[in-house]
Deep mutational scan, measured.
Amino acid sequence: MFYPNSPQTSPQLTQIPYGQQYAMMQRQIQQPYHPFATTEPQARLYPYHYQGPIQQEQGGFITQQSTAASPQYVQMRVTPVDQSIMSGYPNQTANGSSSSSFNYNIHPQQQQQQQQQQQQLRHHAMPVGSVPLQDDRYRKQLIVNYLAPDVTSTDLHELFSRFGELDGARIIYDKQTNMSKGYGFVYFCHAEDAKEAVERMSGYEFHGKWLKVGYSTNPLNIVPSNSSPYVHAGSRGAAG
Rank of each mutant, 00 (worst) to 15 (best):
T152C: 06
I222W: 15
A148Q: 04
Q75S: 05
H207G: 02
Y33P: 09
R27M: 15
A43R: 04
D167E: 03
H207C: 06
Y204H: 06
P71R: 05
E199A: 12
G52I: 13
A169E: 06
E192S: 07
I143H: 00
Q72M: 13
Q83H: 11
F2V: 02
I143P: 03
H157C: 08
T39H: 14
I171R: 01
E40H: 06
Q113I: 10
H124Q: 12
Y22I: 07
V186C: 09
Y33C: 08
H207S: 04
P127G: 06
Q112H: 10
T14N: 11
G237Y: 01
G234V: 04
L220P: 00
G240H: 14
H190M: 02
P7A: 11
V128T: 07
V151H: 08
P71V: 12
T9C: 14
I222Q: 04
I143T: 00
E199P: 08
M201C: 02
H107A: 09
S235R: 09
V198G: 01
P35H: 09
H232R: 09
S10K: 04
A23H: 08
R200S: 06
E196K: 07
P90T: 09
Q118F: 13
Y48G: 05
T14S: 06
K209A: 00
N218Q: 01
R236W: 01
L156T: 06
I172C: 00
G59Q: 11
A238Q: 04
Q12E: 10
S70P: 14
F206Q: 01
Q65F: 15
V81N: 01
N178A: 11
L133M: 04
K140I: 00
A68Y: 08
T38F: 15
S99E: 10
Q30L: 15
P41W: 07
Q116T: 03
I54C: 09
I172G: 00
Y33H: 03
F36A: 03
G208H: 12
R139W: 03
T177K: 08
P35V: 15
P149N: 14
N145D: 00
M86Y: 04
H157T: 06
S180D: 01
D174M: 01
T9A: 06
Y46K: 02
V186Q: 01
N178H: 14
S97M: 03
V151Y: 05
Q64S: 05
T38C: 15
G96A: 05
P219K: 00
Q28M: 15
H107I: 11
I106C: 11
Q176G: 09
I143A: 00
Q117C: 07
A191W: 09
I62T: 08
H157I: 07
T177C: 03
Y183V: 00
K195W: 14
Y204A: 03
W210L: 05
R236L: 05
S202F: 03
Y187N: 00
H157R: 08
P224Q: 07
P17C: 02
A233D: 02
A148D: 02
K195S: 08
M201L: 05
M76G: 05
P149C: 06
D167F: 01
K209S: 00
S87R: 09
I29V: 05
D167V: 01
S99L: 14
H124N: 10
S100W: 14
N145H: 04
L133F: 15
P7H: 13
L121H: 07
T9K: 02
N105A: 12
A125N: 09
A43S: 06
S180W: 09
V213Q: 01
Q8R: 05
S235I: 02
P127A: 13
I106E: 07
G182V: 03
G168Y: 02
Q42N: 09
M201T: 02
L142H: 02
M86T: 03
N103Y: 08
Q113D: 07
Q72G: 11
I172R: 00
W210K: 03
Q28W: 15
P41M: 13
Q92N: 08
